[in-house]
Nucleic acid binder design. Structure first.
Length: 692
DNA sequence: ATCGTCATTTGT
DNA sequence: CAAATGACGATC
């Protein structure tokens, strides 16, 4: 403690004096020195979570509360404590009268501020998330609580918003179960639903209606979307309906001051509706009544920091803990969401078939043997005739055309040369690849490493395999030449358009970066289906459909001429699902298939990644439940002549019901390794999204 | 980083 | 056999 803490005059300039300064410092330091500190009279013990990411220190530690900090040391506040000789940050989670600790207790070094940044409900959530992922509470708290900004904390607090008047929620009448869900939310019942939005649906408005209903009841709502463009749209809708003072937007890139300012408004209970990207999944709204995740299949919903929590899963934990409603929403549907439906945990909210017919665009598949357009320039761009015609018609009608092109950098995989079925390992059903990304050689399983020199396609019996390579991205220029005189705009990478006007233009976008078109696109061309579907990833089909639907939903209804041309064979389930606009059917298929192959979400998996020695050591130490399996390890990245790589990965697999045991095993093995100060890092991720 | 514990070495 | 030294592990 510095003298300035006990002597308010310390830092003021002092008149010249003959008094000896050291004498004054002596008395000040003695007053605050260790020997002189007195414990608070009531509840002198503070239980503290220290901000140290070591698994064996993942518990609370007891300290004494010095009498002078008695009033400030409130549960949930930030503190500084001396821990093993070092000053570290921590959170005071509880005041108590007694301690179990037998040794001497240190005093809290400092109460950073009285602000209760870790209220009990947030602590409960963070503990649950840490348990769920086999991670530490300190790691989760870092994701959940933004860094302090002292000046912002000292500002006058934001005035609490008055409950907004309730909207009608009529927009939900297009969905047979929609009104019932809205009513359940209004009545404060814990309703769970998986919502499939209509094509062209004003989904920000629909979600804003639900959030406003909840806020109207004086309760809170947390709505999480993939990126900041979605945040902007959803925030605007909520602010319009509930009033700007009832809503905050939380997204990355706000800057530390503004981020903390808005977050403080939430934790202080001044706002009822939080709209944000993934970090907002922890937003500590008061009295939560509704949690929403939009487009839960988007990989942006996984936080890239340990323990890598996923938004849908965290919101499920919260909804359960708070007896709040949960809405898993999107145009498409993940296998995980389908599991919620099939187990009866959630109801599905799907559009009425007759409404769907009036809203969906007309979808035309065009496989590999398409008729190339006769037009010379279109031929050069390798445009199928139907695609060329659809685009030309749209442009002639004055409407923009969306062209979806894949991002670069997908890992090529192997598929049957005849029927295109993905090649999978016969032992563990992992994806087959030729090591070293070479043209020829023996295919090996990417998961368990077992070579399969005599692979035969289980679907058609063919023994020939072909690499599914990513086709060259058609450049905007190439397309532009097929439509001379047409404006070509691009959206993707670091340069993402939010909206385009209702004028003729070609809009070339990568998945996830499609701008919204004023009045809708006249057509969308989804031309690189093979590139998307051919990715050697567990989620390739689901992900492809999700991206197609995200693009197709921006197109006008068929009866207004809206057309979607998809560059893939009509027989492929994902194409069928798009044509019939039935993502639920596809998700059910996907889920069933994953069940047969022993994949998530029927099982829980964890990936273990690091140097070969480190991975081997960890696999040796981990105490898996009897039902657990180890797949691999297999090399990652470049492989030398003997098939060795710098890094390896193994997968752990358990039946779903043993997920808890898997998380506990991961936490335990981390504890042992951290305690031994094993330097070699191993990345352990539960429920990894990519299982390439 | 620092402290306490416990085993080992050293001094009587 | 007691005191000094040091390795180790927990860390309030």
């Amino acid at each position: 403690m510095s003298p300035s803490d006990t002597d308010p005059l310390w830092e003021l300039p002092k008149p010249p004096s003959t008094r000896r300064v050291p004498a004054k410092r002596d008395s000040a330091s003695r007053r605050s020195g260790k020997g002189r500190r007195q414990p608070a009279e009531s509840d002198p013990i503070a239980r503290v979570v220290v901000d140290i990411p070591l698994a064996h220190l993942d518990r609370t530690f007891d300290y004494q509360v010095p009498r002078e900090h008695d009033a400030d040391a409130v549960p949930g506040c930030r503190v500084r404590v001396r821990f093993a000789g070092k000053l570290v940050d921590g959170y005071l989670v509880e005041r108590a009268a007694t301690t179990d600790h037998t040794g001497r207790l240190s005093y809290l070094e400092r109460v950073v501020s009285r602000e209760r940044v870790l209220p009990p409900a947030l602590l409960t959530v963070c503990r649950a998330v840490a348990r769920r992922y086999g991670g530490t509470l300190a790691d989760v708290l870092r994701l959940a609580i933004p860094p302090r900004h002292a000046r912002v904390e000292a500002e006058p607090p934001r005035a609490p918003a008055a409950p907004p008047s309730e909207p009608s929620g009529d927009g939900w009448s297009h969905y047979p179960r929609g009104p019932a869900f809205a009513a359940a939310v209004r009545q404060g019942r814990a309703a769970h639903a998986v919502w499939q939005a209509l094509p062209g649906e004003d989904w920000p408005r629909r979600l804003a209606e639900l959030a406003t209903i909840v806020a109207g009841q004086g309760r809170g709502a947390v709505l999480v979307v993939p990126d900041h463009r979605d945040v902007a749209r959803l925030y605007a809708a909520c602010a319009e309906l509930a009033g700007a003072d009832a809503v905050v937007a939380l997204s990355a890139g706000l800057g530390p001051a503004e981020r903390y300012r808005r977050w403080l408004a939430v934790v202080r209970g001044a706002v009822r509706i939080v709209v944000g990207t993934r970090a907002a999944m922890f937003a500590p709204v008061a009295d939560p009544g509704l949690y929403v995740v939009w487009d839960d299949g988007d990989d942006l919903h996984v936080d890239p920091h340990a323990p890598y929590p996923q938004v849908r899963d965290v919101l499920m934990l919260r909804a359960h803990a708070d007896a709040a409603s949960l809405l898993v929403a999107g145009h498409a549907r993940t296998a995980e969401a389908q599991l919620l439906v099939e187990t009866g945990w959630a109801h599905e909210i799907t559009p009425a078939r007759e409404v769907l017919r009036t809203r969906a665009p007309r979808v035309t598949p065009t496989g590999e043997d398409f008729d190339v357009a006769r037009d010379e320039a279109a031929r050069a761009a390798r445009l199928p005739a139907v695609a060329f015609e659809a685009a030309r018609t749209s442009l002639a009608a004055g409407a923009p055309v969306l062209v979806q092109v894949p991002r670069r950098g997908y890992v090529p995989g192997l598929a049957c040369a005849r029927c295109r079925t993905s090649a999978r390992c016969r032992r563990c059903a992992g994806p087959l690849l030729i090591p070293g990304a070479r043209e020829s050689g023996t295919p090996c399983c990417r998961w368990c490493g077992v070579p399969d020199p005599s692979y035969r396609c289980p679907a058609c019996g063919s023994g020939r395999l072909r690499a599914v390579v990513i086709g060259a991205v058609r450049t905007a220029e190439e397309l532009g030449r097929a439509f001379p005189g047409t404006t070509v705009r691009t959206s993707g990478g670091g340069d993402v358009l939010v909206e385009v006007p209702a004028r003729p233009a070609l809009v070339v976008a990568t998945p996830g970066a499609e701008p919204v078109a004023d009045g809708g696109y006249g057509a969308a061309l989804l031309l690189d289906g093979w590139a998307l579907l051919g990715r050697q990833d567990l989620r390739a089909a689901e992900e492809t459909l999700r991206r197609w639907m995200a693009a197709a939903t921006l197109v006008r209804p068929a009866r207004e001429g809206g057309r979607v041309v998809v560059g893939a064979e009509a027989g492929i389930p994902a194409v069928q699902a798009l044509v019939r606009w039935n993502p639920g059917w596809h998700a059910a298929l996907e889920l069933a298939e994953r069940g047969e192959l022993g994949f998530p979400p029927h099982v829980r998996m964890a990936s273990v990644e690091g140097s070969p020695d480190a991975v081997a050591a960890l696999l040796d130490e981990i105490d898996l439940p009897d039902s657990g399996e180890v797949l691999g390890p297999v090399p990652l990245g470049e492989v030398d002549e003997e098939g060795r790589a710098e890094r390896e990965r193994a997968l752990l697999r358990v039946p779903r019901e043993d997920g808890k045991a898997l998380a506990e095993a991961i936490h335990a093995v981390r504890g042992v390794r951290d305690a031994r100060k094993v330097a070699e890092p191993v990345r352990i991720q539960l429920d990894p999204l990519a299982l390439v």
